[in-house]
């Protein structure tokens, strides 16, 4: 579990022009958790997190603390990496004519064996993403909406729907 207080320290870091190493240290768990929720695969999340920080290192000059937090900036990079990964995966699957939609086929359970973890596996990636950003990473609504490229209202709707589905899935599992 990462340090949830890291988010609270971000404004201070932002104002003091933080070093890349300190930002990476503070945000690594958050980025990894986001990618884990998004992909549902530990190995992929680990690879994409590494790729994300390599990209961040290359483009660190472009990061402007006045325009947003480092966490949001890193999540945007991580999202693009994940989307690229999904696209290449889909192309590969089409080539091999093996299309496995169900993430439950992953051998290594991403989130463990609890009720929430089981329900998460059945949730679509887009829903898992918004849950990760809003609930787990505790990004605010406007930042999440900007990151996802949607309006604040759409972001709230998506989160509400995702939580509702998660609740239903967890109840079904209990039954």
């Amino acid at each position: 579990m990462w340090d949830v207080n890291a988010a609270a320290t971000m404004p201070a870091l932002a104002s003091a022009s933080p070093s890349f190493a300190s930002v990476a240290e503070a945000e690594l768990d958050a980025v990894h958790a986001y990618l884990l929720f998004l992909t549902g695969d530990r190995a992929v999340a680990e690879d994409l997190a590494g790729e994300t920080f390599e990209k961040a290192l290359r483009t660190w000059r472009r990061f402007d603390p006045r325009r947003g937090t480092a966490r949001a900036w890193l999540c945007a990079i991580a999202r693009n990496s994940a989307l690229d990964h999904f696209r290449s995966e889909q192309r590969r699957r089409r080539r091999e004519e093996h299309y496995a939609r169900d993430v439950s086929t992953v051998d290594d359970p991403a989130w463990g064996q609890g009720a929430a973890a089981v329900a998460l596996r059945k949730l679509p990636a887009a829903d898992r993403e918004v849950v990760a950003l809003r609930i787990v990473l505790e990004l605010d609504g406007p930042t999440t909406a900007r990151l996802l490229g949607i309006t604040r209202t759409a972001c709230s709707t998506r989160l509400s729907r995702a939580l509702q589905r998660l609740e239903e899935l967890m109840r079904d599992d209990d039954v």
Binding site: M1, W2, V4, D29, H32, A33, L36, F37, W111, G112, G114, A115, A116, A117, L120, V131, I135, V136, L163, L166, E167, M170
Partner: peptide, 11 residues
């Protein structure tokens, strides 16, 4: 749910 999600092993 939020508490449970944050407690998931995602480090």
């Amino acid at each position: 749910l939020a508490h449970e999600l944050r407690s998931l092993p995602t480090a």
